[in-house]
Design a binder for these strands. Structure first.
Lengths: 205, 205, 205, 205
DNA sequence: TATGAATGAGCCTTCATTCAT
DNA sequence: CATGAATGAAGGCTCATTCAT
């Protein structure tokens, strides 16, 4: 991919995350990427196709991680859960702007086919986690829990924390200028919380 | 509030939830509410002020519930948590369209002052839960946990489930036409999951 | 129809005749009609629908004339032909700008449904003339001629003269500034020419 | 002229005839001619100059034919008229796409200098026919007719028939898929009609 | 109070053209 | 000689809003 195309995509992530799809104008986007307004259509064909191209490119980060962890025979089931939690926390915090876009898009009923594409990308992750837990339950290493909802708790917790800087700072007693999402201590704290919850919830005492 | 004003606000909730703020046009809104296009500006002054008015009106539902539960001296701490979980599940499922809007709004950096208003509305809930847990920890009835993140897990889990009908149906093995958010069994299942998690996490074994 | 709508339609006739459909911009059109650019879409929905509305309105002039002449029992067949020629000459010269648009539109393969509409409007005229001639042939008052092509000769001759002022002036030895289409002598000349031709062609010697 | 240049010109004739000058984009044209978009400007300088080049090249076909017929001493005056009619019918039917463009161009007031060029090309034909008829009138072999309008009738009739396939098929009772312009019987019919008209009109009985 | 008409700004997109190689 | 990339202008259209009644 050429430099300019990539530059446009990166600017798009920023703006779409801040203002949403309809709230972002091509003029604004071109200004941020320092290219001509016509370039966006030249490269991507339309605003919507740029959006799709951005999703296709940036979504790559989410693939594969979970599978590798699940397959790893040196890890116990609960260790796998811990690794998966760390994996999600790191990826969602790192790619939080893109993740915000995905989040918005899933909520809206516009652009149905894009929604389908997103579901197709995210679903395998959820399924892999569910399968892992189900098999651990069968083996007797985990308690009988609602395996399909575990992933909702993990990702939901992270999402909720990523939702609003303002809310986050207020809850954790930081001043407004603090950026919790780049604070390693805070990131660790979220991971630890999830791991403790899951240990308590999944492991037989 | 006159009938027409309320009618407009209700149409606004529907459309803003489906299409977002920028994605919803006043013409569309007026058509759905079956009023004149000029009516919206006449009543509310502007599209943005209609949005704020809608938030102010619909947000009322979320106030008070938690406080009553916390104050109730006939309940144990864990019973209070159970009641709070049920309260959140019921309210978020019932008002899911409005909740979606709030969710979107918190994510975007547009309309800063509205964001502040939303935080001011939601924060007391979070604080009350945190305070409840902290006092239970002090009393020794709960384990030492990260009290500020408990609320994130509760609301985050619910939100994640409410995010996308498509994803939800896929994860829970239902066909595409199923509407999980109106299925009492599904709602109960989410509440049960959260209560089990919280019991395992908060209670000393 | 409101004044403004009619004003826009009239400006549209002028501009479309001079520059064609694609060659005319809505901004230009709005400027000529002294209305806001948004008015065109407000009233007509789109540039194309304005075009169709204009055709529908202006096409009315062409209906009925021929039928009346054909039905008139006080006229001989050749007198009817003469009247029809005069009718066509007058109408095409008077409405030459609109006629030019119709002419252009019939030539292009864009806007197929509009083309169909135009054919539906014009065809009855052609058919009525053909029927008149066929019946006169049967009666023995006209020679056996190719009745379907007579209308082509009448309208084609007028069209060709209306095609280009420049060409016309050159052929008839007038200076470039002359406007033949508003010169009654010239109009009469064209009518006389067609009548002489048709007399010679249709009447048995 | 190189192959590519000619290829572009030929594609231009097709597209300009179907969609008009403004309705045809350089991208479309380049796609049809299977050359780079920059090629058109590279070879011809601009879209307008391509148009002029196309006219200059394709207009050649119309020159000379009439002169040869007029000069031919073995033909009578009316035979010359017959030959001229056949010549026009054949040429206009064969080059009908290019002719359509010329026709459109004469009608519009854009591109004045191109219009002048077209008039300069077409006028000699008209003049030669007029001169032929005037001399025949002087000799007494033709009736005293409006010689300048004869050419309008001949070309106008052919044009009118070439105007719209749809209209033509309707008038001549053919189904919509029929292509009258490539039907030799139909072509002959138009020529015969014109010759009969001209015989009746020009010859003393 | 209520509304159809009207407005100017902005939208996304496409255009003919030019540039750098 | 040829071309993919790039550009500024203009295109048709929709927007939230205001006006006149």
């Amino acid at each position: 991919m050429t430099d300019k195309k990539e530059h446009i995509v990166n600017s798009a992530v920023e703006l779409f995350a801040e203002k949403g799809f309809e709230g972002t104008s091509i003029r604004e986007l071109a200004a941020k990427a320092e290219v001509n307004v016509a370039m966006v259509n030249y490269y991507f064909g339309s605003k919507e196709k740029l959006f799709e191209a951005m999703v296709a490119q940036k979504a790559a980060y989410s693939r594969g991680m979970i599978d590798e962890i699940v397959k790893d025979k040196t890890l116990s089931d609960i260790e796998k859960i811990d690794r998966i939690i760390d994996g999600f926390v790191n990826r969602l915090f790192t790619n939080r702007k893109f993740h915000r876009i995905i989040h918005q898009e899933l909520m809206l009923s516009q652009r149905e086919n894009l929604q389908q594409a997103i579901v197709d990308i995210l679903y395998p992750n959820s399924l892999a986690v569910k399968t892992l837990i189900d098999s651990a339950i069968k083996k007797g290493s985990f308690k009988k829990v609602d395996s399909a909802l575990v992933i909702a708790t993990v990702i939901g917790t992270i999402n909720h924390v990523l939702l609003s800087k303002k809310m986050c700072n207020k809850l954790f007693g930081k001043e407004d200028s603090h950026v919790p999402y780049e604070d390693p201590k805070f990131i660790k704290r979220v991971g630890d919380h999830l791991k403790e919850i899951m240990h308590a919830y999944l492991l037989k005492n």
